[in-house]
Design a protein around this nucleic acid. Sequence first.
DNA 1: CGCGAGCTTGATGCCGATCAATGCATGTGG
DNA 2: CCACATGCATTGATCGGCATCAAGCTCGCG
Lengths: 258, 258
Amino acid sequence: MRDTAGFAGNHVVMHPSPPPVRMEPFKVACSSCNLRELCLPVGMSEDQMERLEAIVATRRAVARGEPLFRSGDAFTSLYAVRTGFFKTCLSSEDGRDQVTGFQMAGELLGLDGIGTDRHTCDALALEDSSVCVIPYHQLEDLSRELSDLQRHFHKIMSREIVRDHGVMLLLGSMRAEERLAAFMLNLTQRLRTRGFSASSLVLRMTREEIGSYLGLKLETVSRAFSKFQEDGVLEVKQRQIRVLDADALQKLVNGTAC
Amino acid sequence: MRDTAGFAGNHVVMHPSPPPVRMEPFKVACSSCNLRELCLPVGMSEDQMERLEAIVATRRAVARGEPLFRSGDAFTSLYAVRTGFFKTCLSSEDGRDQVTGFQMAGELLGLDGIGTDRHTCDALALEDSSVCVIPYHQLEDLSRELSDLQRHFHKIMSREIVRDHGVMLLLGSMRAEERLAAFMLNLTQRLRTRGFSASSLVLRMTREEIGSYLGLKLETVSRAFSKFQEDGVLEVKQRQIRVLDADALQKLVNGTAC
DNA sequence: CGCGAGCTTGATGCCGATCAATGCATGTGG
DNA sequence: CCACATGCATTGATCGGCATCAAGCTCGCG
């Protein structure tokens, strides 16, 4: 039987086609959320978490293909991914397009909007997803009272900057196969953090989206996948991927295999 | 007579070779600093600024070629550039190297360190420079009291993220000349903000450093400069640059000239 | 004056883009 | 249940932009 673990395991699957946006009036309970060790409340006490829950009052469902927000939208809230999978992408006026990131459960979306009070990129759901809505001004207010929250929020922003620098390194100095290797390692690592198999996964994005993220054309991504399969590093069946030799990937990312 | 304004104008020039690091016990006065409209205190009242000055107690001079901090150093402070010019760069173990940014007066350095309490990149002075030292934990404490400070600090971090996304777009989808055009426009715009001529400047970095930032080899950068000169877009004499046709640069960055 | 770091310019080759055709999976309507 | 459309992936052939290799050149400085 085929292993379909991937990160589809605990996703909210909504069929047949749900309304694209649905507000859930139910109380959000960070304290009982299985993402609390990945998300904003990391390291917070019980009563601090209650304060946070009080402002994170709503959830929002986003159907596959729909935007959570778009570039130019007024910025009011951050979003924590509960279930599902997103991409953020920049599109310049002349049709150039760049995927700037893929976000999975526990990761924060919308940080780009703080600087100008408008979102500067599009966030699109790659599968039916749900997010916790975190009204930003309330978060600012609360983080003035809870230094643990403040500290953690700053760490999240800083790590986003560091992540971006890593992508710049990748885009600026790696070759196609190295880029894909780095991408796959990053993906499996994040899945492992979330308790999923690191060796078997289902890609939620197309070759074109991967290519956009990595600064490659979709054909090049496809060829690199095929190469990895030939070399016994990956098993690739469309979006079903099995990692056979993680070390080989790691060696590609460093310079050892050149 | 040659216009040498560039951004050398108000820089502290220290010859012959000063001690690489010098602490200045003098009081820092944000309120009388001509960078206060670019730096952290933007939009703060007089007495708020006094609170900030109280924690920004020291300056530090960094000689050309010397590090302000290095990857792996313990993170304790942020730094605001007072005078001079820096680059930040990432170097992976296998010798790959990526310049992730160039910082000039009024810009903040060190945000990368917040996430892990260690710096994740090197910051090197490209000319004799000086910075204001901002002890980070004191800044956190103060920004819990002064919401204006908090808000502005968050905006600065967010804008850094947005800037990085822009670089990702550049690295992922632009061709050599487009990259250099975007780079030159960005540079002239920042100079203009600081009251310098936007049409005449002196590059503080080598072709190789520009290339590393733009994901190009130094020869390609050089050829692109030559091309711009041929086309009457720039006048290039080593590091002396004069912008003759800013519109042409702008058109290159968008798709109009393709 | 001569050295060296940084810059320019030319010749060549390779990696990845582009163009094009085919394959494969899913879904839809007859 | 099949025929067909559609979206995505694979694979091949060719092309072009940038890297690489290799000389010279410029300028500041000891």
